[in-house]
Structures are given as structure tokens and as C-alpha cells.
Simulated scan of single mutants.
Amino acid sequence: MIEYIKGNLAELTPAMAVVDCNGVGYGINISLNTYSAIQGKSSCKLYIHEAIREDAHILFGFVDKQERELFLLLISVSGIGGNTARMILSAMSPSELCNVISSENVNMLKTVKGIGLKTAQRVIVELKDKIKTGSASADIGLGMIPAQHNAIQEEAVAALNMLGFAPAPSQKVVVGILKEFPEMTVENVIKLALKRL
């Protein structure tokens, strides 16, 4: 079992990080929270969950153990696979997710793409007792070097495509968000798009 991978960050998109560890490039699926934390760094350490299937070995990487713990809890719920769990962790931070589950906020959970009423209720029923709500760590607004809208738009649409959304609706939603909030960072554009798609 791989506990973590530490190395140079060779490539980074909002959905995937390639970490070069002693000359081997590991393609690791990441959430938006992890993307925000490692963006702009030359090296990183990601805690790993290995999903081994008949047709693929998939690595999911997390910037801290808390996020990985939540991911493992989410995939223990029937009907939630790795990609859906990653989608949930991209739509809200670990502390927000803990608050949503402990306060039984079904409607907030339903805003995540692919999560219907029954799945949201199942997540809350199965995980409510397993999640300890500590002091919710306040999310620090991550600043970003001002970039042209086109770069943000392209990156956001590419990330949404990687997460399984069709290009046309993704483009439309991202353009709408950027018109509404021109100063928004790419992570926040994607988070909002996940709620609107």
C-alpha cells in the first residue's frame, strides 16, 4: 500500500497532479481543495488512496490526512465511488463537509453534481456518527495572480471536462460565472460551476 508520494510537481491541473518521484511520474487524481493547496509549488507530498480495479490502478491524492479520511468515509457509503467522493470534496472543504453532515444539511449535499436526495440522505445517516466536528478550520481565501479571463475559463472548462461534464454546458456555466464575478479564482469558478451544472 502507498501511504504518500513526495516529489517534484511535474504537471498540475485542477483534477490531476503528476508527481515526479525519483524519475517515475505518478498521475494522481486530486480534489480542488488539494489543487488550491499545492498550486504554485515546485514539490509536494500527497497522501494516497489506491483504488485497484480489474481494468485500472487509480491513485487519489490528498494534501492532508483529514481529507483522505473523509474520502475513505465517503467511498464506504454504497453508491459513492472515487470520482463522486472527489466531486464532493471539490465542491466543499473538509470542514464544510463535516458541518454539512453533522448538521444533516441534505439540501447542501444535493447541490453536488451526481448526488440525489436518497444518496445525500444515505451519506448523512451512515457518516453522521463517524464524523467528529472539531473547530471548523476557517478557509483562508487563496489569492491568485491576476490572469486573463481566457486562461481561467479554459482551465475551468478543462477541469470540468475531466470530472465528466460535457464541454458545451461547462463552457456556458463558466462564462456566466466569470461575467458575474470577474475577479474569481479558477478554483472558485470550478466550485461554483459544480453547484450549477
Rank of each mutant, 00 (worst) to 15 (best):
A85E: 01
V77W: 07
D64I: 05
V63W: 03
E69R: 08
I88S: 12
F62D: 08
V77A: 06
K65E: 14
R86E: 04
L73H: 09
S90R: 14
L73S: 04
L89E: 01
T84R: 12
R86Q: 07
D64F: 01
I88R: 01
L59E: 09
G61S: 02
V63T: 13
E69C: 06
A91Y: 04
F60H: 10
I75W: 08
F71S: 11
F71L: 06
N83F: 06
G61P: 08
L73R: 07
N83V: 08
S78M: 08
I80H: 05
L70V: 09
M92W: 00
P94F: 06
I58V: 15
R68I: 09
V77P: 03
M87C: 02
P94G: 03
F62S: 09
P94D: 11
E69L: 12
S90L: 07
F62N: 03
L70C: 02
M87T: 14
P94Y: 11
I58W: 12
R68K: 15
D64Y: 02
T84E: 00
F62C: 01
G61C: 08
S76L: 12
I80Y: 01
M87Y: 00
Q66P: 00
S93C: 03
V63G: 09
Q66I: 10
L59C: 04
M87K: 13
L73Y: 15
E69A: 14
G81Y: 06
I75G: 07
I75F: 09
S78N: 15
G79Q: 05
E69Q: 14
K65Q: 11
G61L: 05
F62I: 02
M92V: 14
I75Q: 10
L73A: 11
D64V: 02
L74R: 06
S90K: 09
G61A: 07
L59W: 02
G79I: 05
G79N: 01
S76F: 11
F71V: 07
N83S: 12
F71I: 04
T84I: 15
D64R: 01
V63A: 13
L73T: 03
H57Y: 12
L70A: 03
A91V: 02
L72Q: 15
D64S: 07
E67R: 00
I88Y: 03
I58A: 01
L59V: 09
Q66S: 14
I75Y: 08
T84Y: 00
V63D: 10
H57M: 15
F62H: 08
T84F: 02
S76W: 11
A85F: 04
K65T: 13
S78I: 02
L89N: 03
R86F: 00
